[in-house]
Design a protein around this nucleic acid. Structure first.
Lengths: 131, 131
DNA sequence: ACAGAATGATACTGATAGGGTATCATTAAA
DNA sequence: TTTAATGATACCCTATCAGTATCATTCTGT
């Protein structure tokens, strides 16, 4: 089981880099080396974050990406939900056809609790915490 | 991201069934309906738990599976580690070639903390809790 | 106007894991 | 000896992960 996939990992590093950079925008070429991933791949990841409103993007020469919010307002949970999709803890909860004992299921109840606390953890870590 | 895959889900239900059954062994055929999964698939899952020492198995007519330990000594984390493999939280930690900032990496530090607490949660839930 | 540098959008590929089926061998009870 | 059970494997299909390639668009500087 992987909690954070590579996209989230790379994205977190790139966002920390941007937060530290103290420039209007940072291009992917500038981040490439530090983040440790190929330019096209990082580009695609950051584009998704742009679409999701987490990053600003400036096209054209001298352009690049920048954080759309303050670092303390960008959470690990934001990156996860954009780049990995929603947490679907056990399949019973996720399937359209719920299992027979859905309401009474103790497993579901326990796992829901774990889910809630895990999400709270991912929520509590911000880019600022990683600078 | 899926916290518990279907194998773990099915296994948990089957183990609860066995714990409730109060019989020396329970065959897959007897569990099939309640667990809601095909017989061959459930069989394979329980065989893995047998290999891992979590279940006892009795071959031959009248045979089946039984818990190898008391329900309060079988933890959700046991099922996860057998059926999903170890938690590999972020890839940086997992790769043999560690990233350059491995020791200083705040992300890694934060994520390790989350991992520890998540494992503790999975550890705290036993089959007895689900009966 | 034009060249170059940057993102936007999309399509494609290969590897891996999840989910599931099928089959034959082995064991034990009736 | 038949039948009911697990043991062990070998497959298969699909989705997701990780990554590459390509063309379109936009902006800046000369």
């Amino acid at each position: 089981m992987t909690l954070l996939n590579r996209n989230v990992d790379y994205a977190a590093r790139a966002l920390v880099f941007m937060a530290r950079a103290n420039k209007p925008t940072v291009s992917v070429a500038q981040m490439e080396g530090e983040v440790g991933v190929s330019r096209p791949f990082l580009r695609k990841t950051l584009q998704r974050l742009h679409k999701a409103g987490i990053l600003q993007a400036v096209k054209g020469k001298g352009g690049g990406f920048a954080l759309a919010r303050n670092p303390e307002n960008i959470r690990l949970s934001d990156l996860v939900s954009v780049l990995q999709g929603p947490l679907k803890l056990n399949d019973c909860v996720f399937r359209k056809q719920l299992c027979r004992h859905h309401d009474a299921c103790l497993l579901r109840h326990k796992v829901s609790g774990i889910e809630t606390r895990l999400l709270a953890e991912l929520d509590s870590v911000t880019i600022k915490d990683l600078i």
